[in-house]
Design a binder for these strands. Structure first.
Length: 251
DNA sequence: AAATTAATCAACCGCGACTGT
DNA sequence: AACAGTCGCGGTTGATTAATT
């Protein structure tokens, strides 16, 4: 027959025998080259298929089964901050893969944390001291809970001195659309990681690094005081407040 | 009980990043 | 600088299972 026939690679679901071949090979020789490995392991699969099978199902410590309430909260919170960066979100959940998190989001959580509209790099409209270099990145998010809806509107700003700040307003309404509360905060990111995240979100297209002058200022202990009102910490405090007032069920 | 629709999730695909030549 | 090979990510698909009519 044609060589096409000989080299034809299997697709679709993995059999128990294939799984065993992959496991035995990796246990014996480790992972050295996904695209070369299948023929040494006696598998008629391409490297990508092997890698996916190993990473998502066969690798030790991959967690199966239902997601806990805590895991759900981490996904919701992380997604609000990171968007569809499934791998980054999964790294916060030991044993969960990006594919699992992505699937779980689409099948269970999407409805609870719906709208996430990002309008990158628009000139800020309502700044009291408008600067031609001032940029805003607006995020609007709606979260549905049993008895309430939270409308979150957040704007991140960066000025020509590269110092970022944010302003976030959350309005809580009940079933009938009646206003029941509001939360407002403004400030700058907290930890170095938060700051990097902040910049990642602010400038995703340009893929900018943190400007050195800002990083220097941030890491200078004398200037720590000016970063006390942390955006992300405030977000957590905000969530705690919601829990404490029973607007959100305690995790 | 059968047919239809919805939910789930494993796997595929294309693309960009990275590395070595 | 240009190219090829590899890897990892995220969007999407499609087969299977569960729920509903």
């Amino acid at each position: 027959m044609s060589s096409d026939m000989k080299t034809e690679l299997k697709k679709g679901s993995w059999s128990a025998e294939e799984d065993q071949k992959l496991i035995s090979y990796i246990e014996k020789y480790g992972i050295w080259n996904w695209s070369q490995m299948p023929r040494f392991a006696g598998l008629s699969r391409n490297g990508k298929s092997c890698r996916l099978r190993w990473m998502n199902y066969l690798k030790p410590n991959v967690k199966r089964g239902n997601f806990s309430k805590e895991e759900e909260e981490i996904i919701l919170h992380s997604h609000a901050l990171l968007g569809n960066r499934w791998s980054a979100i999964a790294s916060k959940l030991p044993g969960r893969t990006d594919n699992d998190v992505k699937n779980y989001w689409h099948t269970h959580l999407k409805k609870r944390a719906i709208i996430h509209n990002r309008v990158p790099q628009q000139t800020a409209q309502n700044d009291t001291n408008p600067s031609p270099e001032c940029k805003a990145d607006n995020v609007e998010e709606t979260r549905q809970f049993d008895n309430h809806t939270a409308y979150v509107s957040e704007s991140w700003f960066t000025f020509d001195d590269y110092s970022p700040s944010s302003s976030c307003t959350t309005t809580i309404k009940d079933h009938d659309g009646q206003f029941t509360g509001e939360y407002h905060e403004a400030g700058s990111p907290g930890t170095i990681d938060d700051l990097q995240l902040f910049w990642d979100q602010l400038c995703p297209v340009q893929n900018l690094e943190i400007p050195n002058n800002h990083l220097d200022a941030f890491t200078d202990p004398l200037s720590q005081e000016s970063y006390n009102d942390h955006t992300i910490n405030s977000y957590n405090i905000f969530n705690d407040d919601l829990y404490n007032t029973n607007i959100l069920p305690h995790p």
